Simulated scan of single mutants.
Amino acid sequence: MTVLPAPLGARAVVVGGTAWHVVAADVDPAWVRSTVAHDPIAAPLGARFLSALADRVGAEPGSLDAVLVAPPAPASLGLELVPAEVDHPRVRRALEHRSDVRIWSTPDGAGVLILGRGLAGRWEVSLEVDPSARGRGLGTALVTAAPALVPDGAPLWAQVATANTASLRAFLAAGYRAVCAEVLFGP
């Protein structure tokens, strides 16, 4: 377990993978270690520790997300996307939590792709597919195209709520790789 100061863009974040965790928060490292000592493999991403950390940093934890990294950019987008101004909850959330937000949609508006700089300045992707267009591969096509839209070919990350199985399937089908789990605490 590694304990670091809170990162740019969050009050705290807990990140974990196979037998490792990082707790980035402005709290005493000794408190962190003693609070998870009973089960250092599972406790850092468990409800009790996350609740205790929330009390310490004064911010609510978000959802437990799978963090994925995109494959290399495709040679072509594979679908038509146009820059868009869309009023949608997914876009509003991106505007609250990310900077340098860029939005594209399919010409018919059935799919929306959002890129922006999130935690620690990393490029992050999210998407929304209209319910009438779901189940036909549009989500996978959107996230397949996304790496080609990132400036300078920078790495692209996705945070997917573990319960959002449709989104997880789309990202995995597009070749994204799971690298860890993460819980962000609001700004």
Rank of each mutant, 00 (worst) to 15 (best):
L95S: 02
V112H: 04
W31S: 10
S51D: 13
P89M: 03
R122V: 12
P44Q: 05
L77K: 09
P74N: 11
P61F: 01
G58L: 00
E85K: 03
R56D: 01
G118A: 05
R93T: 14
D87R: 14
S63L: 13
G58P: 00
V101Q: 09
V67T: 12
D108Q: 03
G46E: 12
A52I: 03
A54N: 05
R102G: 10
V86R: 15
E96H: 14
L95N: 02
D108P: 02
R98V: 01
V125N: 06
D108E: 08
R92C: 04
S126K: 00
V91Q: 08
P29E: 10
I103F: 04
A42D: 13
A120N: 05
L53F: 06
V82W: 04
S51G: 14
V112I: 14
P74W: 12
P107A: 10
R90A: 14
E80L: 12
R90V: 15
H88A: 08
L95T: 01
G58H: 00
E124M: 09
T106C: 06
F49V: 08
E85M: 04
L79D: 03
R48G: 12
A66N: 03
V101C: 07
G111P: 02
A47G: 07
A52L: 14
V101N: 03
R117V: 06
G116T: 09
S105Q: 13
W31R: 09
R122A: 15
R122T: 12
S51F: 05
V101H: 07
A120Q: 10
T106R: 08
R93F: 13
R117A: 06
V27N: 05
G116L: 08
L115R: 05
D100Y: 00
I41C: 06
D87P: 07
D55E: 15
G58N: 00
